[in-house]
């Protein structure tokens, strides 16, 4: 099989590019901080039984460690609960997000905190939150004819202003 030498050169460069891409992604996955993908760690649950769930029945933020918080979020047509989600600054927050009805999205606008929300599955993502501020949250997966109104708010407040509980 005759291959022109320029083509061989391009084949080599193409492979180099591909390996470079895989290497970059791998670097992101093991570097500091190591970027973790949404995985299969979360539980499964019946979306119709969410209201009886110990955490999702009354979704909100709770303190689980020294500077660690857990935020239980329910996405449903066409809202996020709780809204707003209030967390203190300079903490590590793990979001547990599930759906009560159809597939939704959960995206903290302008950041990399982003996940699909699939009924029956709990999406789990941990982020480090530094400065106080406000972020919009959007549902980025079509979820019905009111989809465009589905938004939320993430409020990061200074630690001394945080009242420690549910913002609802």
């Amino acid at each position: 099989m005759h291959i022109h030498q320029y083509e061989k050169l391009w084949l080599g460069l193409s492979l180099l590019l591909i390996v470079g891409f895989v290497a970059t992604v791998t670097y992101g996955a093991v570097g500091t901080p190591a970027i973790s993908m949404i995985g299969d760690d979360g539980d499964t649950l019946n979306p119709n039984a969410i209201d009886d769930h110990p955490e999702f029945g009354d979704p909100g933020v709770e303190k689980v460690g020294e500077s660690e918080y857990a935020a239980y979020v329910v996405a449903r047509q066409f809202m996020f609960q709780p809204d707003p989600i209030v967390v203190p600054a300079n903490t590590t927050v793990t979001f547990y997000v599930t759906s009560a009805d159809v597939i939704h999205g959960f995206s903290v606008v302008g950041t990399n905190a982003n996940t699909m929300v699939i009924p029956g599955e709990v999406a789990e993502l941990t982020v480090e939150i530094n400065d106080p501020g406000e972020y919009g949250i959007v549902c980025h997966e079509y979820c019905g004819n009111g989809h465009h109104g589905m938004e939320g708010l993430l409020k990061v407040v200074p630690a001394d202003e945080y009242d420690g509980g549910d913002a609802e």
Binding site: G28, A34, G110, N112, A113, L125, E128
Partner: peptide
């Protein structure tokens, strides 16, 4: 895109 836009984008998912 990777090192500036993505890694500089804040709220990195670490777990």
């Amino acid at each position: 895109m990777y090192f500036v836009e993505f890694l500089g984008n804040g709220l990195t998912v670490v777990g």
